[in-house]
Amino acid sequence: MTASPAPDTWTLAGRTFHSRLLVGTGKYASVEETRRAIDLSGAQIVTVAVRRVDLTGKSGPTVLDALDPKRHTLLPNTAACFTAEDAIRTARLAREAGMGDLVKLEVIGDPKTLFPDNEALLQAAKVLVAEGFIVMPYCSDDPIICRKLQDVGCAAVMPLGAPIGSGLGIRNPFNLKIILEQAAVPVLVDAGVGTASDAALALELGCTAVLMNTAIAGAKDPLAMALAMKLGVEAGRLAYLAGRIERRLYANASSPMTGMIS
């Protein structure tokens, strides 16, 4: 390591971040657990969903109580939107409620796999970019859709590693490599991570960051997993910067082959 390494940061639409782990806020047992998990993860960008206010009069702590506006940037999503129109409406509502321009754009094509509808996604992205949103689309791990999303002005692309909440890890690292080669915007792996080594792999491949929710919130001990993910992301990033050795078929001795006793 160099004596005084430059701060390892990344930028999104002109904003600088040091954490390469983005976390969701769904599926936690309580707002307090959410708050502690976010804290341990070190995440600076935190996703939330947009839903109807409960009009039955019940009120308690909300997800916003788990966040510190000074430390955390809100990334509202358009989860569960199945049409471009619903995703656009949801993004507009999120901006009105939160007064931020960031949106994690999801247009879902199928309820069982939750795979993105890339055609509708591209359509929604164009509209929202034109309205000044900083659009971060959740998309397939397909280099072509990633390129198209970048070309219409998305601030990042977020290909899935595997289906949302599946914990299957990164199923197609080779596609991710191609996506990374051609990307001029940050590439974030969004969805599919199951454990810390999956997160590390995303960063080792050269991805800018990784976004996850279920892998932390659904772990037996979400707080320990939040920390594990933070360390996994940091380890993966360092390994990427360090530059791994080439894979080879045969051994390459670590100890000298000369000077042996006889």
Partner: peptide, 30 residues
């Protein structure tokens, strides 16, 4: 009716018969 009503317009936006209103907030999500 599928259009956002900006906060600054809440006090001057009169409701009409048949309006469809959505009131949303942030909840936990990924």
């Amino acid at each position: 009716n599928r259009e956002v009503v900006r906060r600054a317009q809440h006090a001057e936006t009169r409701l009409a018969d048949g309006d469809v209103i959505e009131v949303v907030q942030f909840v936990g999500g990924g």
